[in-house]
Simulated assay, not measured.
Amino acid sequence: MGIQKIKSFCVIGISVRTTNENGQAGQDIPALWNKFMAEGITEKIPNKFDDTLFCVYTDYEKDHTKPYTTILGCKVENLSNIPNGMVGKTFEEAEYEKFVAKGDIFQGMVFDEWTKIWNSDLDRTYTADFEVYGEKAQNPKNAEVDIFIAVK
């Protein structure tokens, strides 16, 4: 889809430390989403630009085969007010390769796109990668989710 430079941004949300080893992320990340939705986390995030959801993968121990942190939240103006039980993180300006997952969210279309990314020869930095669930992701049966992968 082409490389684009994305300016520094901040996210506040909830997080989990997980790994793709032994399918662990396949349990931890859906559990994080369930908690996020069940507890109405979007409504509790201060200083957010809008209700677009960001699912950020960061703090990689090495690459996608080793432990990393997943943060599910919203893009915010600043990190001056991080509610208890949440995390806030600033992501530096970087170059990203954009991918678009299209289809039924409940049929694993985002995971399918990640499988393609993992099997590609992208020169990744493993600093922060993220998914954006905006307007086009509102209908889960026919959704579009943008995936941005940090590249060298």
Rank of each mutant, 00 (worst) to 15 (best):
K62I: 04
T42S: 07
P140I: 13
D121T: 14
C74Q: 15
E61Y: 05
T42I: 05
E95W: 01
E135I: 10
T70S: 08
K5D: 08
S8R: 15
F148K: 03
M1F: 03
K44A: 05
S8Q: 15
D129T: 09
N78M: 08
D146S: 15
E131T: 07
Y96P: 03
M86H: 11
R17Y: 02
R17H: 07
E93S: 10
D121P: 02
T52N: 15
L72V: 12
F36Y: 13
W118H: 03
E131G: 02
Q107T: 09
C10V: 06
G85F: 07
F106P: 01
R124C: 02
N20F: 01
D121G: 07
S80C: 06
M109E: 10
A128V: 15
A31G: 05
E135A: 12
S80V: 10
K89C: 00
F91D: 04
L32D: 12
H64I: 02
N119Y: 00
I82P: 02
E92K: 14
N84C: 04
K44F: 00
Q27L: 10
T90D: 09
M109A: 04
K136H: 11
F106V: 04
N142R: 13
P83H: 08
E93A: 09
D129P: 06
E77I: 09
K35P: 01
E92P: 01
E43S: 12
N81L: 05
G13V: 06
I14A: 09
I14P: 06
F54E: 02
D112M: 08
K66I: 01
F49C: 04
V16R: 13
T52P: 01
E113W: 00
V11R: 11
Y133C: 04
T70L: 00
N34K: 15
G40Y: 02
D123R: 13
D104V: 02
D129R: 05
Y60L: 06
T127D: 10
E39M: 08
P67G: 09
P30Q: 10
L53M: 13
W118D: 01
T42A: 05
G103K: 08
N47R: 14
D50C: 07
P83F: 03
G108S: 08
G13C: 04
N84H: 08
D50F: 01
D51P: 00
M109T: 14
K44L: 09
Y60T: 10
A150V: 11
N47M: 09
V132G: 04
A150R: 14
F106G: 11
N20Q: 12
E97W: 01
Q107D: 10
K75V: 12
G108T: 11
K116D: 00
A25R: 01
E144S: 15
T70E: 09
Y68F: 13
D129K: 06
A143T: 11
W114V: 00
D123E: 15
N34D: 14
Y68D: 05
D112Q: 14
K116L: 01
N139R: 12
G23E: 11
A38I: 06
Q138E: 14
G2K: 00
L72C: 10
S120C: 03
G26F: 03
I82M: 05
D112G: 06
A128S: 11
F54N: 07
F111A: 09
